Structures are given as C-alpha cells and as structure tokens.
Simulated assay, not measured.
Amino acid sequence: MTNLFSVFDPSTSILGMSINWSSTMIGIIIMPMMFWLIPTRMMVMWSMINKTLHNEFKTLIGQTGMNGTTFIFISVFSLIVFNNFMGLFPYIFTSSSHLVFTLTLSLPLWISFMVYGWINHTQHMFAHLVPQGTPAVLMPFMVCIETISNLIRPGTLAVRLAANMIAGHLLMTLLGQTGTSLSYMLLSLLIVTQIMLLMLESAVSIIQSYVFAVLSTLYSSEVN
C-alpha cells in the first residue's frame, strides 16, 4: 500500500522546479475581472463579506487599534479561503494543507505582534503573564504556563489549518479509492456520501479561514 499522505506531495514540475505552488497565486489572475465600473453580483457579495468581517474584526480589536488594521486580517482570510477552495477541485494541489504555507502566514504575524507589544507596551505584556486574581503561590507557575501558551500560538494556528485540510481530503481519498471494487448499489451510496463530504469540506474551508483570521485578530488586540 502506498503512503496515504503522498496525495499531498508536490508532484508536477518543469525543469526540476515544482509548479504545484502556482495554485496559491492563481487568484491574482482572477481578481482584476471583478474590478469593473459596474459591480458584478460576485463583487457585491464579496463587498458584503468584507464589510461584515471588517465590523467584526473592528469590534475584536477595540478602540485602541489603528485604522486599517482589519484589512490585514481580511486579506489573510481571503487568501486562505481561496486556497482551501482551490484544493477541493480534482488534481489541484492543496497548498493550505502544508505547514510551509500555514507557518508562513502565522509566524510573521505572531512575531510582529510580539515585537510591537514588548517594545511599545512592555508593562502591559508583563501584566498579561499573570491573570488577574491569581494567588501569589501560583504566580511562578502561571508565568510559565502563559509563556508556553504564547510561544506555541503560531504553531497551533498553522497546525490547526493544515490538519483540518489534510483530514477531510484524506477521508475523501480513502473513500474514493474503494469505488472500483463496489457494486452499483454501494457505489451510489458512496457517491452520495462523497457529495455530502464535499459540502462539509466546503464549510470547513470557510470556518478554518475565519478561525485563523479571528484568532490572529485576538492576538493582535492583546498587545495594545
């Protein structure tokens, strides 16, 4: 039996260079089509989504956040949701299932929050290490726990996104491979199951993008 995770390996290449990762940037080709003088239905829908996200992120960041901060997280959401949906099409490389992609997003965000927080709000950052109302005996332990939880944040953001993308795709791949050996009755049942799984994966694609963006927003609000 071949390695199950081999379906996620970059396999297409030209002159030794992997071209699978080009699926990450295909959205840039599609985007200019939306910027017409008369907005299309797609553009109106996308504007409504952006407005909703902007209002939500603005509430999470609070009054202390700088103007335009929400658009960073809206851009991150847009990039992830596009890549997640691209991975649902057959024979298209799922870049968001790789830690190379997810860590590239989460690590710079987290480092920039930490650098900004410790330089500009040092006392506030130290105060965050000990939650309010902690007994004096537990303070050293709480500092250790809070420090560890802070350090693993970029890892948890990256792994959560990658693992959720891998899990759904693996399940669909495993079920799809059994199709050749099934009877017509079971095959029709398998097709219905696969369609339902595809709908679930579509929902997961949006939810995971939203979770990534919201958690990034919450982490940024803590440093102000």
Rank of each mutant, 00 (worst) to 15 (best):
G155M: 13
I148Q: 03
G155R: 03
G168R: 03
L161Y: 00
Y184P: 13
Q177M: 12
L170D: 01
H169W: 04
L175E: 06
M172I: 05
L171D: 09
I195Q: 15
I152T: 04
G179M: 11
L157V: 02
G176S: 12
L186G: 09
A163S: 08
H169S: 15
Y184E: 15
P154W: 08
H169C: 06
R153H: 02
I148W: 07
S188F: 10
Q194E: 08
M172G: 03
L175Y: 04
L161W: 02
M172R: 15
Y184S: 15
R160E: 05
I148S: 02
M172H: 05
N164L: 06
T156Y: 10
I166N: 04
M196I: 12
I166E: 05
N150S: 11
L187Q: 11
L151W: 09
V159W: 09
L170P: 01
L189E: 13
Q194R: 08
Q194I: 08
S188V: 10
G176P: 02
L174A: 10
R160D: 09
L161Q: 04
G168Q: 06
G179N: 10
A163N: 05
L171F: 04
L171G: 01
M185N: 11
T180M: 13
Y184L: 15
Q177W: 10
A158S: 12
H169P: 00
T193H: 06
T147I: 05
V159Y: 09
N150H: 08
T178A: 09
Q177D: 10
A158V: 05
M172Y: 03
L186C: 09
H169D: 13
I191N: 05
I152Y: 02
I195D: 12
G176W: 03
G155I: 14
V159P: 01
G176R: 07
V159D: 00
V159L: 12
A167T: 06
L171P: 00
G155Y: 11
Y184F: 12
S149T: 12
S188Q: 14
N150V: 04
T156Q: 09
L187F: 11
L189S: 15
L151C: 14
G168M: 10
T147P: 01
T178P: 00
M185H: 13
I152C: 01
S181I: 06
I195G: 06
T173Q: 13
Q194F: 05
S183R: 09
L190D: 04
P154H: 09
